[in-house]
């Protein structure tokens, strides 16, 4: 009995130690702020998985520092791609001189996105270099990188703190572009509500680390019983005093868009 009893004690002790070791990191709060930030970003991304495709109309209002406004209208079609970034097709309806112009983007989790522009006057499809993402989208305060599909892999993360914003319990996380050379930002600070993982506000810091822009998102609605989409986004540029407001309407999900709608052929016949 004795040796057997000893073995049992050893076994018990070993199991206990192993269990303790397994539990220890969580119990001791060993999740680093970086890990926590990434986990939040992943959770937000996971909650948006499975939307398949969507279409939406967008009214963009540009406002200069004197309050003068000019508007652009477009429609955006998006296709979810398994294992890579989304594909999107933006078709411009106004200003009228660019009516029919369309932009096709293949977002990639790693490396540069692919982008083509369709010019209806020449019936020409032009490939455009998309490495540098800091350029203005349609003369607005949104850069290409702000409106592009927000892939988790394009940033590294850090959880900063928890905070109440607009009456909602929020995570405040910071993210840093992986492609530092071609982004206009050093970092972004993001407010994400704890319950639904919706982005409520983003502060953009330029490469010199001074506050450049603030994006506020509003009018969130739930579609398909699952997917939250903001109906309003306002981008305020603190450095030049200009702002751009986006108003989304007629969101539709699962409309049966196909890969061929996001091809060069699809780009040419986009309307």
């Amino acid at each position: 009995m004795k040796p057997c009893g000893k073995a049992a004690v050893y076994l018990f002790t070993a199991t206990a130690v192993m269990l303790l070791l397994m539990l220890l990191p969580a119990a001791a709060g060993a999740e680093t702020p970086e890990e926590k930030g990434l986990a939040i970003a992943r959770q937000a991304d996971a909650r948006d998985k499975g939307f398949r495709d969507s279409t939406v109309s967008l009214l963009m209002t540009l406002k200069n520092r004197h309050g003068q406004e000019s508007i652009r209208r477009m429609r955006i079609k998006t296709l979810e791609v398994e294992g890579d970034g989304d594909k999107s097709l933006s078709i411009f309806d106004s200003p009228r001189d660019v009516r029919g112009t369309a932009l096709l983007t293949y977002t990639h989790k790693f490396g540069d996105d692919d982008q083509w522009l369709y010019l209806p006057a020449l019936k020409r499809v032009k490939r455009i270099s998309s490495r540098n993402k800091s350029g203005s989208f349609m003369g607005s305060e949104f850069a290409y990188e702000d409106i592009a599909s927000q892939e988790v892999e394009k940033y590294t993360y850090k959880w900063l703190r928890d905070e109440v914003y607009n009456g909602l319990e929020c995570f405040v996380i910071e993210r840093y572009p992986v492609d530092r050379k071609n982004s206009g930002y050093k970092r972004q600070v993001i407010w994400i509500d704890k319950k639904e993982y919706r982005t409520l506000k983003v502060d953009y810091y330029d490469r010199k680390d001074s506050l450049l822009k603030t994006l506020t998102l509003s009018g969130y609605r739930k579609y398909g019983n699952r997917f939250w989409r903001a109906s309003g986004m306002n981008m305020m540029n603190h450095q030049n005093g200009k702002s751009t407001r986006l108003e989304f309407s007629d969101y539709r999900f699962g409309v049966g868009l196909r890969d061929s709608d996001f091809s060069r052929n699809g780009l040419k016949r986009a309307r």
């Binding site: 270099s129 540098n132 800091s134 350029g135 203005s136």
Partner: peptide, 14 residues
């Protein structure tokens, strides 16, 4: 070739 420069000197100019 075409070489693109985006937001030259933070002026917004491409």
């Amino acid at each position: 070739f075409e070489y693109s420069m985006v937001n030259v000197a933070s002026s917004g100019l491409d």
